[in-house]
Simulated scan of single mutants.
Amino acid sequence: MRVAELSKRTGVAVPTIKYYLREGLLPPGELTSPNQARYGDEHVRRLKLVRALIDVGGLSIAAVRDVLETMADSDESMYEVLGTVQRNLGADLSAGDGEAYEKASRIAYELIERREWQVKTGAPQLEVLTAALATLVELQGEDLLELLDAYAEASERIAEVDIDYTRRGDGRAGAVERMVIGTVVGDAILSALRRLAHENEAARRLRSG
């Protein structure tokens, strides 16, 4: 297909497609003339993945490139690919300081130890958790800390489902793509489901009050 048809099939504007090609987010098409190229279904699939990473995951162009390069590296393990995705999904946070941050860091590490989670020291999402907990401490919302283990238990079950989903992929390439999509899009789905569940539970239990 020509670039115009690729645009029509994916809903991505032609100038944007050309920009992604220049940035290396899409593989080049098959040249049919000096100024024309032909694209296939693999370009449709890749373009949809790129849009998901940007639109749903909120990743920058540089972050998308990092994820795609890791996906393409056959020497990278599934564990390492997941680490790259998690790193790029993490908020851009620097290490905090102060009493609230120190307390939050202690709470986070105690949770990891208590749950016997295998997490690397300095993992990006651990920093995100610590920063969020520090905010909670500063806002005097420490009662919510009592829910941490319940949240962690629910997250463990979700992680099991996620990994099972990933392992259904056809070969390494299919499994890696499932992991990336499941992680990025799954975050958005979980956030939406939580809010819908809140609405349902509030209607069921709080409306009469």
Score class of each variant (00 low, 15 high):
residue 165 Y to D: 10
residue 143 D to T: 12
residue 3 V to Y: 01
residue 101 Y to F: 15
residue 31 L to F: 13
residue 23 E to M: 11
residue 31 L to R: 13
residue 186 G to M: 03
residue 40 G to Q: 04
residue 35 N to S: 13
residue 87 R to D: 13
residue 163 I to F: 06
residue 64 V to I: 05
residue 204 R to I: 04
residue 52 A to L: 13
residue 155 S to G: 14
residue 3 V to W: 02
residue 156 E to Q: 14
residue 107 I to H: 07
residue 2 R to W: 09
residue 65 R to G: 13
residue 74 S to G: 06
residue 146 E to W: 02
residue 151 Y to F: 14
residue 76 E to N: 12
residue 87 R to P: 01
residue 183 T to P: 08
residue 185 V to S: 13
residue 1 M to Q: 10
residue 188 A to N: 07
residue 144 L to G: 10
residue 93 L to E: 03
residue 207 R to K: 10
residue 7 S to A: 09
residue 87 R to K: 09
residue 7 S to T: 04
residue 194 R to H: 11
residue 62 A to T: 15
residue 95 A to E: 14
residue 32 T to D: 06
residue 191 S to N: 15
residue 128 V to C: 14
residue 150 A to W: 09
residue 199 E to Y: 04
residue 189 I to S: 11
residue 75 D to S: 13
residue 158 I to N: 09
residue 162 D to L: 07
residue 177 E to T: 00
residue 164 D to C: 01
residue 85 V to H: 00
residue 150 A to K: 13
residue 52 A to P: 05
residue 11 G to I: 10
residue 62 A to M: 09
residue 87 R to N: 05
residue 196 L to H: 10
residue 144 L to C: 08
residue 152 A to L: 04
residue 132 A to F: 07
residue 85 V to E: 06
residue 154 A to Y: 08
residue 19 Y to M: 13
residue 132 A to I: 01
residue 128 V to G: 06
residue 3 V to T: 07
residue 23 E to A: 08
residue 148 L to R: 00
residue 199 E to F: 08
residue 208 S to L: 08
residue 187 D to W: 14
residue 170 D to C: 01
residue 37 A to H: 03
residue 82 L to S: 06
residue 136 L to V: 07
residue 191 S to R: 15
residue 160 E to C: 07
residue 190 L to M: 14
residue 126 L to D: 02
residue 99 E to L: 07
residue 125 Q to H: 14
residue 75 D to Q: 10
residue 132 A to S: 14
residue 123 A to S: 03
residue 4 A to Q: 10
residue 80 E to P: 05
residue 195 R to I: 04
residue 41 D to R: 11
residue 54 I to Q: 09
residue 182 G to S: 07
residue 102 E to C: 04
residue 193 L to E: 05
residue 206 L to P: 02
residue 17 I to M: 01
residue 63 A to H: 01
residue 129 L to Y: 07
residue 31 L to G: 03
residue 170 D to E: 09
residue 106 R to M: 11
residue 200 N to S: 15
residue 15 P to V: 06
residue 189 I to N: 05
residue 186 G to C: 02
residue 26 L to C: 03
residue 55 D to W: 05
residue 61 I to T: 12
residue 51 R to N: 02
residue 27 P to D: 04
residue 6 L to E: 01
residue 166 T to E: 12
residue 84 T to V: 09
residue 34 P to Y: 02
residue 54 I to L: 02
residue 58 G to N: 02
residue 54 I to T: 06
residue 122 G to Q: 00
residue 75 D to R: 12
residue 133 L to I: 04
residue 142 E to I: 05
residue 70 T to A: 11
residue 128 V to P: 08
residue 118 Q to S: 13
residue 106 R to E: 15
residue 23 E to N: 06
residue 143 D to I: 11
residue 125 Q to V: 15
residue 105 S to T: 10
residue 114 R to I: 08
residue 132 A to N: 15
residue 98 G to Y: 03
residue 96 G to C: 02
residue 37 A to E: 03
residue 70 T to L: 09
residue 189 I to C: 10
residue 50 V to P: 01
residue 45 R to C: 07
residue 91 A to D: 10
residue 20 Y to S: 02
residue 66 D to L: 08
residue 26 L to R: 00
residue 117 W to C: 07
residue 24 G to A: 02
residue 195 R to V: 06
residue 41 D to G: 02
residue 45 R to D: 10
